[in-house]
Nucleic acid binder design. Structure first.
Lengths: 146, 146
DNA sequence: CAGGAATTGTTCGTGTACTAACAGAAGTTG
DNA sequence: CAACTTCTGTTAGTACACGAACAATTCCTG
């Protein structure tokens, strides 16, 4: 009767909606990231990290691997290239593709930032007890889909 | 030993990091919102909803209530005003403040969109069982902080 | 009351994020 | 092989999101 979680009957409070809280949680994480790794944005770090994991990738493929669309990954890669962290060359087999790889400098930076990246994940989850954090991650993963 | 959740020792996989999954979950929600309510962005809806909840507010106060900084809320309010959903006037008591309120049109739109907004929250949580959703929301709230 | 501090709103610059439209290359099929 | 389709990357436009700097106003405190 008094169930606010009902999708059609209960009252609607913005502060209780998943989307709104999700946005705030994301904001908190972004703030932690910016504080601990000021020289790279989370998105840039994600692209660099994934590229280091994969070794190499085409631009759009890297975008898919990091959940960025073609337009977004382009800007991110442009900035990483301008800073000499990522190298790009035209693919020999497929003239459409841009072949990407992390430069030595990019790999070194990635390695150097790894401890801080781990810290950020830890700090982000700090409000939760270890058990809670594990449960949360599992449910969040489900929610993210794909 | 083989614990990937350890913040200083384990291996680092981008796909397992809170921040990355949080971003993907947010993306999924944004896509659902855009599909079900194409005429308003989630942020615009949040501002309108909060303003309807509160009745009235100054611009920065509304920003705080919706987790937007001064620069962001300004743009959002500008767009809502341009569409006649929100009215603004200089505050009589405090010449700095912009007094905001939802217009009749704004309130009607808000009321009309409410069922869809509820649906979006429901759809967002759809990958989770009801029990899981409840747990998730609680943990997410903790994570968002403040 | 005077002068410093805090608040309110604005502007600028940078960086995601997505849609839509496009060109060129590669793959598929009749 | 020619037409169609798909895939790759690019560009333009809109909308958050935040830091930094700023002017005007109000508050606070000596």
């Amino acid at each position: 009767m008094n169930d606010n979680s009902d999708a059609t009957t209960g009252s609607y409070r913005l502060d209780d909606q998943v989307g709104f809280i999700l946005r705030r949680a994301n904001q908190r994480h972004l703030a932690l990231f910016a504080r601990d790794i000021p020289d790279l944005t989370p998105t840039q770090f994600a692209a660099l990290a994934k590229l280091c994991e994969l070794g190499q990738a085409s631009q759009n493929a890297l975008g898919r691997a990091t959940a960025m669309d073609a337009a977004t990954i382009k800007g991110v890669i442009d900035r990483l290239r301008k800073r000499g962290l990522v190298a790009a060359r035209r693919d020999a087999d497929d003239a459409r593709r841009v072949h990407l790889s992390a430069t030595d400098q990019g790999q070194q930076l990635y390695a150097a930032l790894l401890p801080r990246a781990r810290e950020i994940s830890k700090e982000t989850l700090a409000p939760l007890a270890p058990r809670e954090a594990a449960v949360f991650l599992q449910l969040l993963e489900k929610l993210a889909g794909e």
